[in-house]
Simulated assay, not measured.
Amino acid sequence: TEAGWPHLWLSEGFATYLTGLYLEHARGEAALSKYMTKARQQVAKFHAKNSGEPLVDTTFSDPNALLNTNPYQKGAWVLHMLHREVGTDAFWAGLRAYYDRYRHQNASTRDFRAVMEDVSGQDLEAFFDQWTRRPGHPVIEGTWRHDAAAGECVVTLRQTQDAAPFRVPVEVKAEGENASPATINLQGRERTTRIDCAEAPSSVALDPNVQLLAELSMRRAE
């Protein structure tokens, strides 16, 4: 059980995400992508009206007010991104270790982070601070153009939310190409980079595998 109301996501977010993983097991990857896409839309809608509320909210006065999208859908999204951050083997080993260590006890977000760090061997402080202590999520607008001479697409990503930039990996994929998605590490407000595009694609997709909690849009540069 979570150590206090601010850590409600440790039960509700887990239940929400594990439901999605069951759907993936039973129906395939597309089912999980659809499930997480809907959850992402719910998070964006909630944040539009509650922009100052982080996942771990220590400022509440009424515990019932915490029974909202944050501990459920955003909590699920934090686990989904953590899954990607540490890898599948470490993720499942970490969950097992967490439940073993805190069986019949109370645990906080810091406790969960410590277990995942022990198992993965990674420093996850920045990840947990960004996604559990900080309100909101990135709003990313992208543009692209094809450079036929170079056989590349020039991609520009901009974070347009009022808050400071997030540090996030963004997958980008040119439609019609057989290549795997390229990952752009967006560390600041804007970044321009190039990805392989031998032929002019019909479009370029952001986050094609539904791996990032963000509001995303992409258009061809004029």
Rank of each mutant, 00 (worst) to 15 (best):
V56Q: 02
F91D: 02
V210A: 06
L21Y: 09
F91I: 03
K34R: 14
Y102A: 13
L157E: 02
R189C: 09
A174I: 10
T183C: 12
S51P: 11
R40I: 03
A44L: 13
P165Q: 05
R133I: 00
R158P: 10
G94F: 09
Q73C: 00
Y98D: 04
L124G: 03
H83Q: 10
E24P: 07
R40L: 10
D207Y: 04
R158M: 08
S33C: 09
K49R: 14
N68P: 02
S108Y: 11
R113T: 07
L124F: 08
F60D: 02
I140M: 01
T58H: 10
N64E: 14
T156I: 08
Q73M: 10
S217I: 12
V139C: 02
E177V: 08
K38I: 09
H47S: 06
G4D: 14
K38C: 03
Y17I: 05
L32Q: 05
Q161F: 01
L216F: 12
H80L: 12
L23F: 11
A90G: 00
F46V: 01
N68W: 02
D129H: 12
V168M: 09
Y99Q: 14
H137S: 05
D57G: 03
Y35L: 08
F14N: 05
G75P: 10
L213C: 11
K49Y: 05
P138A: 04
Q105S: 14
F91G: 01
W77V: 01
E12F: 06
E199K: 15
F14E: 02
T132F: 08
Q41C: 01
R40T: 12
A174L: 11
E2D: 05
P208R: 10
A163R: 14
H80P: 01
V155C: 05
K49A: 15
E177A: 15
R158L: 12
D100T: 14
V154R: 09
Q161E: 13
